[in-house]
Design a protein around this nucleic acid. Structure first.
Lengths: 157, 157
DNA sequence: GAAACAATGACACCCTGGTTGTCATGAACG
DNA sequence: CGTTCATGACAACCAGGGTGTCATTGTTTC
């Protein structure tokens, strides 16, 4: 592959990736509203919903860890966690690694609540799937993950 | 494929799609910040940037059309457009179809500004592309489009 | 053509997600 | 140790974005 061909290809790829970003905005907003409608039934704000799902999929973690994983400021996550803790959805357990920063763990109530929300969302997604193949969805996940990781380094370079 | 197999498959597909959504949130936030840093150089807010790209890719459209396309309220889009118009980035041209609602069109200044922003973003994306294949990106676009469309109907059904 | 209805623009108000800044404290590490 | 780094707590603030309302102008239907 010649130099010009390569740059042409990466040129076009960049265009397609831009298209991906153009989809992410609207998709985020629509999903946001859907989640908002949906999670408020359990009395969860969008922010709380996000941290609870994180804990559900990832097991106990510290607040700063979650902030990084969700691309949210640690202070914001802290607020969400404090809120969740005040409602008994989440509890603090000692962290063997860092003594100051305790691990956050779902309580049984928390697990119940977030599971209810997520299950309801999954029910919607099941009908959505339609003719999408597993391979396509996998590719999508790979592309998005890659984009996510690359935006991490934006400030560094 | 038996009934149980099909439902198993759609069950699993739903899980993967949920994964996609979990990526959309962080990705949106990171991209948002990147755009913020980037577009403020031209003095464009994120909202203005969104409507200008829309006009750039799609040609002249009315405010309500853009609202639907971007999953934003028509009032919000209107504000962005008025803002853009006040700075001469955009102009109103008579709409043959609807007499009240004029078409919004990029001015030359607007095109210049948005092109500068988008080009700078593309430069970043070019390096990001890496080992992603065109097919993967296409699949990603298809999946996201599908999700977007399906969330449209959420309130209807 | 008039009357009813739908869509647009304009303006005001509000909510909340999310950041930044600061400070004090406790951990890690030379 | 002293210093530096990470965490929690709290406050202030910003801006994206929605909703509600009104007047106006189209559009439609009888």
């Amino acid at each position: 592959m010649s130099e010009s061909e390569r740059s042409l290809a990466s040129e076009e790829l960049a265009d397609r990736l831009a298209e991906v970003f153009d989809l992410v905005g609207p998709l985020y907003r629509r999903a946001f509203r859907k989640v908002e409608q949906d999670a408020t039934i359990e009395g969860l704000s969008v922010g709380v919903r996000a941290v609870l799902t994180m804990l559900r999929d990832h097991g106990p973690m510290t607040v700063p860890q979650m902030g990084r994983a969700l691309a949210l400021s640690r202070q914001f996550v802290q607020r969400m966690i404090n809120d969740a803790a005040a409602r008994g959805l989440v509890e603090f357990v000692p962290n063997p690694a860092h003594k100051r920063s305790s691990l956050i763990r779902l309580t049984r109530e928390g697990r119940t609540a977030i599971t209810a929300v997520v299950d309801r969302e999954r029910a919607v997604l099941r009908q959505v799937g339609g003719d999408l193949s597993g391979a396509e969805v996998d590719a999508c996940i790979r592309v998005l993950s890659r984009l996510l990781r690359s935006l991490d380094n934006v400030e560094i370079e």
